[in-house]
C-alpha cells in the first residue's frame, strides 16, 4: 500500500556516497570501493566470506543489530517472535538494495512496523548494513 515510498536503489547509493563524504573518505576511493564490492559480489572470492562473518556478528551483537530480539535466525540463540524468521531472503528479495532499504528504514514500507530504522537513526552505518545484507543473503 505504501510501497511508493520505498527507497530506490539510486537513493540508497546516494546515501552511501553522502555518508562516506561525511566521514571524510575521499569520494574517489568510495566509488572505487563500491566497484570492488560489486565485482566481489559477482565473483564471491574468499574474502567475501569475511563480510558475511562480520555481518553475522553485527546482526547478533546486542549493542548493534540485535536482530535476534525479534527474528529467528539460523545460528542464533534466544530469538524473539515479533518479526518473521529470516530465511530464503535471496529468493524473496533478489535485489540487495531492497534488503538494505528494509534495514535502513522499514517504516518507509510499513509506517507501523516495530522494526527500528537502523540506518535513519544511525544505529548502524551504511557499511554495517551492507555487511549484514551480505549475511542475510546467505540465509
Amino acid at each position: 500500500m505504501c510501497f511508493e515510498h520505498y527507497i530506490s536503489a539510486n537513493e540508497t547509493l546516494n546515501l552511501t556516497l553522502r555518508n562516506d563524504a561525511l566521514t571524510a573518505f575521499p569520494r574517489k576511493s568510495a566509488l572505487l570501493l563500491s566497484l570492488v564490492v560489486l565485482t566481489g559480489l559477482a565473483a564471491r572470492p574468499a574474502w567475501a566470506q569475511s563480510t558475511v562473518t562480520e555481518g553475522q556478528k553485527l546482526a547478533f551483537d546486542r549493542g548493534k543489530g540485535n536482530c535476534l530480539t525479534c527474528h529467528v535466525i539460523k545460528g542464533g540463540d534466544l530469538p524473539g517472535t515479533i518479526g518473521p524468521e529470516l530465511k530464503d531472503l535471496k529468493v524473496k528479495y533478489p535485489d540487495r538494495n531492497e534488503l538494505a532499504a528494509i534495514l535502513f528504514d522499514e517504516t518507509k514500507r510499513n509506517p507501523q512496523t516495530m522494526m527500528p530504522p537502523f540506518g535513519r537513526n544511525r544505529i548502524l552505518t551504511d557499511q554495517e548494513i551492507s555487511a549484514i545484507v551480505d549475511f542475510l543473503q546467505t540465509l
Binding site: L68, T69, C70, L78, P79, G80, T81, I82, T107, Q112, M114, P116, P117, N121, R122, I123
Partner: peptide, 21 residues
C-alpha cells in the same frame, strides 16, 4: 528514542510475542 518505539509498539502491537526471551 533511537529504536523508534512507543509504549504501544510493545504493549499494544505485540503483546504475547517474545522479545528475546
Amino acid at each position: 528514542g533511537q529504536m523508534n518505539f512507543s509504549c504501544a509498539s510493545c504493549h499494544v502491537q505485540s503483546p504475547g510475542e517474545r522479545i528475546r526471551a
